[in-house]
Design a protein around this nucleic acid. Structure first.
Length: 179
DNA sequence: CCCTGATTCGC
DNA sequence: GCGAATCAGG
């Protein structure tokens, strides 16, 4: 996978938007977060991090004979660079349809864009609570860090594992009052 | 442990 | 130029 201008533009957009390198990598596809970070540096976009306590940190990576030979970089720069200006379509509107919202509350507003996850960014440690309508672009997963052993974050665990009786408490009180 | 970005260096 | 390996921090 090569860095077409299309992908570079998307990279810039997402990076500026505040997404993490791993999320951008998942969004782009075919690249790792290392690749994204490397590209960001080469583009000179990296200004977002770092409060250097010291002006220079001596950093060393591998030094001798580590044998990193697994480099699969192909110089197939054959990008169809025929994007005009509005070819980018990767900006999901943060307004999911409330009808498809499984949560009884506007959780969408509680999940920052930077923490939202697509199907590609889900891991065993990310909340898999679906938000929005899968039939449209307004669909993503919560993506927040979930507790150990559960597929949902603390917030959605409360919803997912809430006893049915608890949800019907209001109705039960009505019945008891009537009888 | 999980995650994040930063850097180096073989390719 | 590219990105895996590595480092350093939250």
């Amino acid at each position: 996978m090569s860095w077409t201008t299309e992908r570079v533009e998307l990279l810039k957009k997402l990076w500026t938007d505040g997404l993490s390198a791993s999320q951008i990598a998942a969004e782009l596809g075919g690249v790792t977060r290392n690749a994204v970070i490397g590209k960001v540096h080469r583009l000179g976009l990296s200004g977002r991090a770092k409060t250097n306590t010291t002006a220079s940190k001596p950093r060393r990576a591998k030094s001798t004979g580590t044998g990193s030979g697994t480099s699969s970089s192909k110089t197939t720069s054959h990008a169809p660079q025929s994007i005009g200006a509005t070819a980018l379509k990767a900006s999901p509107a943060p307004t999911p349809a409330p009808e498809a919202e499984p949560a009884p509350e506007p959780i969408a507003e509680l999940v920052p864009i930077s923490q939202r996850a697509t199907i590609l960014t889900l891991t065993e440690r990310t909340c898999k609570w679906p938000i929005g309508d899968p039939a449209t672009d307004d669909f993503y997963f919560c993506g927040r860090t979930s507790d150990a052993g559960v597929p949902y974050c603390a917030h959605h665990c409360k919803i997912a594992y809430q006893p049915v009786n608890d949800r019907r408490r209001d109705r039960r009180t009505e019945v008891r009052a009537a009888g």
